[in-house]
Amino acid sequence: MKLVFYSGGYAEENFNLDQGLLSLFKKKDLKLTFIPSSSYNSNEDYRDIIQQYRPYGIRKFYKFHVDHPFSEISKKIAFQADIIHLGGGNTFYFLKYLRKTGLLKELKAWVRNGGVLTGVSAGAIIMTKNIETAAFPSFDCDENEDNVKNLAGLQLVDFEFFPHYKNSKRYDQELKNYSKMIQSPVYACPDGSGILLNHNEIRFIGKTFCFVNGHKYLLNK
């Protein structure tokens, strides 16, 4: 399984993560499918994705919406990509449509068949066991307007992911409390850092923190 978790930030901040992503491939002529969390404002994100990856030689991009009807041919081409990138936005909304369209299962199968899945922020959270961390911190969290009850994500890894982490007491308090209630670790990444998973090998790129059993650890400086 090959996965890349992006926290967020500008393209230049994510250079090392991008390099890590490219290192997963031997071939150069890569195809990337971008799945935005919502069609609202997704064109800006689409342009940013192209600007971020085009300098690395990726020239074939495909944008695939999940929150309005799509044809079979669109889906087929979306899944022919080498990389599928899940965008940021409202995690609950994104998960709702991935589940509703049956894509959650298809993405899982695609990853198990060798596809490289990347996600930023909400997209990265969805790749984990569940999307509970989208509800943190309480002062700046995603709203569950759709009242999504099944919060299980793609369950590709046994950790949880917290993007846009800021090294502050307010964040720490909430994450420590949360980590006491769960078994798995929560990896918290500030913008520009993230996690690269290549089968059994996990690499923390940029500053990464781990919250477990009410404690905070710095994993990578």
Partner: peptide
Amino acid sequence: EYPQIYLNTETFL
């Protein structure tokens, strides 16, 4: 959709 389909497949639908 058509331009991105052709960009990726290089064949007619």
